[in-house]
Design a protein around this nucleic acid. Structure first.
Lengths: 352, 352
DNA sequence: AAAATTGTCGGGTACGTACCCGTAAAGATA
DNA sequence: TATCTTTACGGGTACGTACCCGACAATTTT
């Protein structure tokens, strides 16, 4: 059992073109030093044979390493969400290290746009061949990506998107539709005259992500002409006291609230409140497969969690750069993640 | 930017052991021709350096190919479920072809255990280094795996499991828990006194898979002490006339049935019936991300589909063999797939 | 004691690609 | 015409591993 020679290599191309391997190599990497005539001849043969370079041999022979930069929020005390993408990134790194790819991590503070700028500046000075970033701050991200574009450094957005043309690709959820799914689940068993509240627990209420999610959520109500006003609760202070106070007030003012939708991973704060105040009659839906959330899911105070595979986002984000830079493959410009539904019953088998 | 030499290769091992590269190579592949003393010395150095063979170079230098056999049901007129695993298998093949791995496909007829035996026989004669199979027929599969074990051919089960010790691994759903999830979803908005029916549409009602799913389903009712008897409907003839007749009868006899759980991918047959008889008041849940099912999901006659990522099962099944045979890595003996919940709203982003 | 066999090992080439270096011919400049 | 530069290409080695072949010594057989 020996490898069949179905694949042609540079050697065969060189033979057919009556040139040396080196000349073929020059054409493939379009380096200079080849006459237009021979170049065309070789390119024709390459097309004819549908030549696919042997990546094994290529990476083996190449002494170059490829350095990628990753720019993401640091894991904070407030939420350990960013652990998951980081795991995916690390997994990808381990997988492609042997192909000569290195990854350097840069972290910024989600409460401080300046830290984003600082780290972005370091990346621009660092001579990286590719960048993966979460554009949490839209304006800052836009400036940075403009700079990358000028330096011809490919970059991938993930977790959330920025309307932009120059990025290599976006990997993340379709946020509008995600909110839409949330509304479906929340209203699935809702009875008439029961009311619904959207809860946003965050210092930045006007974050682009939250807006998209809420639009999707409200659209579902419109599309299905569900009656009743959807209440909106903004909790800017994320400490448990503020949360308790605001939720208490809302529930007192609106006795018919029987379902709540939290637009981010802070849903566990609401669950804690519901548990303490003994309100097991309220359906609760929120985001992300975090330990704290799973705990409340198991206790029954969260009905569903929606999740967009953050670990896989990190993994695929790195891989999108690897595929373009090393394999020279084209990648899809937009790669939407599934909108996963997690319940107490299936959470044990969920892959983040 | 040059590759750092953080990795040690055979050359370094040879240097430290005062032997040639060839001798080190003999130890690594434990071929004969090395004295016990040198063998030990080399093995010690390998451990000390934590030597990781360079797979690129290894596969490049090796002229051997590895042949894998895949044994799965053929795509039938009754269901195109098996297209998905096949896609995953093909994707895996494309990915590892360059490492010298070939895959040969063997198909059997789900209605004919003998066809399984026939194809299994062909595989045993074919000198394959690994086998991936769906053990749809338990007894036949057990016999075949016994034979593989004797020939020291590693094999992986997927889609459904057979209690067994010798298989390399199992990749597929936790069927019991999957039924449990189905019950949760089906009862989530069920009101008092409304009744539930489990529908099995299959020639083999006593299939091990279905039994596990139903056990999980019923366990949920027990665990939550839900009242009311769960009806059971067995439809052995899968044509639409038989389905219509039996369902009509059941619904006439039991007017309170408001929810139905189909234990396999034939759920679209029930959906068609509900549509034709205008029964949009009945919740319906079933299995698998098939075109026909999605159609009914979108129309609203199926509430939820449960799915176990069949394509990924195929992909991972092949990869489990690749990882053991080529990379020499250990693989987890059991790899449970997530129990995915698909609705009209999130189906567009589902990855099968 | 000579010959044959066996056990141990090293030399060397190949896998397909990358890239350095060298060279011959053509063209430019004096 | 002599010298220099540029263009266009080939030779050859290296990457890390696999494995063939042959050398040499130790051991057994005749």
């Amino acid at each position: 059992m020996t490898k069949e020679n179905t694949f042609f290599g540079v050697k065969e191309i060189a033979r057919r073109a009556n040139v040396s391997i080196a000349t073929v190599d020059r054409v493939i990497h379009n380096r200079s030093g080849v006459s237009e005539k021979t170049k065309k001849k070789i390119n024709d043969i390459i097309k004819e044979l549908d030549y696919q370079p042997n990546i094994l041999a290529s990476r083996l022979a190449s002494k170059k390493i490829i350095s990628l930069a990753v720019l993401i929020p640091k894991v904070s005390a407030e939420t350990d969400f960013w652990e998951a993408p980081l795991n995916g990134i690390t997994r990808a790194e381990a997988e492609i290290k042997k192909y000569g790819v290195q990854i350097e991590l840069f972290f910024f503070d989600l409460n401080d746009p300046n830290s984003f700028n600082e780290q972005a500046g370091l990346i621009l000075e660092g001579h990286f061949q590719g960048v993966l970033l979460s554009p949490s701050f839209i304006e800052e991200a836009r400036k940075f990506s403009e700079a990358c574009h000028k330096l011809k450094i490919p970059f991938t957005f993930f977790d959330s998107d920025v309307p932009e043309q120059h990025n290599l690709c976006y990997i993340g959820p379709h946020l509008f539709q995600s909110g839409y799914v949330g509304a479906k689940l929340l209203t699935y068993r809702l009875k008439e005259k029961q009311q619904v509240a959207v809860v946003n627990i965050s210092k930045e209420t006007d974050n682009y992500n939250y807006i998209q999610i809420e639009e999707g959520f409200r659209s579902y109500f419109k599309d299905h002409s569900l009656p009743g006003e959807i209440l909106r609760v903004n909790i800017k202070d994320t400490d448990s006291l503020s949360v308790t106070r605001q939720l208490t007030k809302i529930l007192n003012d609106n006795e018919n609230i029987k379902a709540m939708f939290v637009t981010n991973s802070r849903v566990s704060a609401v669950a804690t409140f519901l548990e303490k105040s003994g309100r097991s009659d309220i359906s609760l839906i929120g985001y992300d497969f975090l330990k704290e959330n799973i705990k409340h899911l198991e206790k029954g105070f969260i009905d569903f969690l929606i999740c967009h595979k953050p670990e896989e986002q990190g993994y695929r984000g790195v891989m999108s750069l690897y595929e373009t830079l090393v394999l020279g493959a084209r990648v899809e410009k937009v790669h939407f993640m599934p909108i996963d539904i997690i319940t107490k019953e299936n959470q044990a088998f969920y892959k983040n």
